[in-house]
C-alpha cells in the first residue's frame, strides 16, 4: 500500500534572493511517512522558529519545499492532476490555530460544514447533508440546535474550534494536521477539545499530527513526539520517555522550563553554554551548540546525525555517539503504533 503522505528530505529556506543576503533555514532535511493504518497520533513540538509551522504548510501543500519533495500516495504534490488534488484535499484535513479568523463573518457557521460536503460530493441530498452535520456536531459534544444557523460571533471560541474539529472529521479524511488547535482557546476547555480530538481520530481511523509548543498536552494525547529545534529534529520517539527522560539537551531545557503545578517541582534555569559552545558558529555544526552546556569540539564541526538510543528513540546529539545512527530515511522508523485499536468495526 502506498504511503498516504510522505516528506522526503524536505528543506525550506527563506530569503537568499537577489537582494537578501541572509537566508533562514526554516526546515532542514526532514523526512517522514504518515499512514492511517493503524491511525497514529504524532506531536511535533517546538518553539517559535522551530519550523513546525513551516512543516505544516509544506505537508499541506501550501508551500513548496526548496529541496526534497512531498508525496501524496506516491505522487509529488506539485504534479497532481485536478482530481488527484481534490482527493488530496479530502484525505488530508486541517485544523487551524485561530478560531476567529477561520470563519467568514458573512456566513453562518453552517457554511464551513456544507462547503466541503458539497465540494467533495459527500451528501446525496440536503437532508443527508443535515444528517451528517448533526452527527458530526454531536460527536464533538455540541448541540446542533444551538450551533447550526448561528453566526460565528454568536458562538464562543471553544465552540467555534469544536465546529472546526467536527468539520475536519466530517469528510472522513485519513489524516488531520492540527496546527496549535487549542492555543487560542480558553484554558479550561483545552483538555476537553483535545480529548475529543484524540478519541475521535482513533475511532474513525484518522491519523493526527498535532503541532504545538505545549509539551504537556503533546504528551497527554500523542503516541509519538518529535522535538524540533531551528528546523532540525532534536529528538523523537515514543511520547512518554521523550518527555520523562529527555535526552537531547534542548529537550531537557524545554521540559525543565515547564511550570508544573506542583510547588515541589521547581522549574529550572537554563544552564549557561559550555566554553566551547559559547564560541560556536550557529551556521555550522549543531544548531544548539551556542546554548549547550555540554557542547564539545565535535559539535562545532558537523551537525549531529540522529543516534538511535533505543528501539523507539532518536536524539541528534553527540552525547550519544556510541549509539548507532538511524539508517537513512524517514523519522517514523522509530515510532510506535498505538497499543489499543479503538476503531469502530467496519460495517
Amino acid at each position: 500500500m502506498t504511503t498516504l503522505l510522505e516528506a522526503r528530505r524536505v528543506s525550506k529556506i527563506f530569503g537568499g534572493g537577489l537582494f537578501e543576503k541572509e537566508t533562514t533555514v526554516a526546515l532542514d532535511d526532514f523526512s517522514i511517512r504518515i499512514d492511517n493504518d493503524p491511525p497514529v497520533i504524532t506531536a511535533v513540538v517546538g518553539e517559535s522558529g522551530s519550523g513546525k509551522t513551516t512543516l505544516a504548510r509544506v505537508l499541506l501543500g501550501e508551500t513548496e519545499p526548496t529541496q526534497g519533495e512531498v508525496r501524496y500516495l506516491g505522487k509529488d504534490l506539485r504534479s497532481l492532476s485536478r482530481d488527484e488534488r481534490q482527493s488530496f484535499r479530502r484525505d488530508v484535513q486541517v485544523i487551524f490555530q485561530d478560531p476567529y479568523e477561520v470563519y467568514n463573518p458573512f456566513y453562518r457557521i453552517d457554511h464551513v460544514l456544507t462547503t466541503p460536503l458539497t465540494k467533495f460530493g459527500l451528501a446525496k441530498s440536503r437532508g443527508h447533508a443535515r444528517e451528517l452535520m448533526t452527527e458530526a456536531l454531536q460527536a464533538v459534544g455540541l448541540r446542533p440546535e444551538e450551533t447550526l444557523g448561528r453566526y460565528p460571533h454568536q458562538l464562543s471560541g471553544g465552540q467555534r474550534q469544536r465546529v472546526m474539529v467536527a468539520r475536519a472529521l466530517l469528510v472522513r479524511p485519513r489524516l488531520i494536521i492540527a496546527d496549535e488547535p487549542v492555543s487560542m482557546v480558553d484554558a479550561s476547555l483545552r483538555a476537553t477539545i483535545l480529548d475529543s480530538l484524540q478519541s475521535l481520530t482513533r475511532e474513525f481511523g484518522v491519523s493526527l499530527i498535532y503541532i504545538t509548543h505545549d509539551l504537556i498536552t503533546a504528551f497527554q494525547i500523542s503516541d509519538n513526539i518529535i522535538v524540533l529545534y531551528r528546523g532540525s529534529v532534536a529528538e523523537a520517539g515514543r511520547a512518554e520517555p521523550v518527555v520523562q527522560q529527555p535526552e537531547h539537551p534542548y529537550s531537557r531545557l524545554l521540559v525543565g522550563s515547564i511550570p508544573q503545578p506542583d510547588p515541589d517541582r521547581v522549574w529550572s534555569a537554563e544552564q549557561p553554554a559550555s566554553a566551547v559552545g559559547r564560541g560556536a558558529n550557529p551556521a555550522v555544526g549543531c544548531k544548539f551548540a551556542p546554548r549547550c552546556p555540554f557542547a564539545m569540539e565535535m559539535c562545532l564541526e558537523n551537525h549531529p546525525p540522529l543516534f538511535q538510543t533505543d528501539d523507539h528513540r532518536v536524539a541528534a546529539c553527540y552525547l550519544y555517539r556510541d549509539a548507532p545512527t538511524l539508517p537513512e530515511g524517514p523519522i517514523d522508523q522509530v515510532f510506535v503504533k498505538p497499543a489499543i485499536d479503538l476503531r469502530a468495526p467496519a460495517d
Binding site: L60, E62, Q86, R89, R90, Q93, V94, F96, D98, Y100, E101, V102, Y103, N104, F106, Y107, V112, T115, P116, K119, F120
Partner: peptide, 23 residues
C-alpha cells in the same frame, strides 16, 4: 483564515473569489 480554509474544502480560486471574498 477562511480563505485558507476554503482551499482545504475543495474550492478553486474562482469559487473562493466569488463565495468568500466578494461578500
Amino acid at each position: 483564515g477562511y480563505v485558507r480554509l476554503g482551499r482545504f474544502s475543495g474550492m478553486n480560486g474562482f469559487e473562493i473569489i466569488v463565495k468568500e471574498l466578494i461578500p
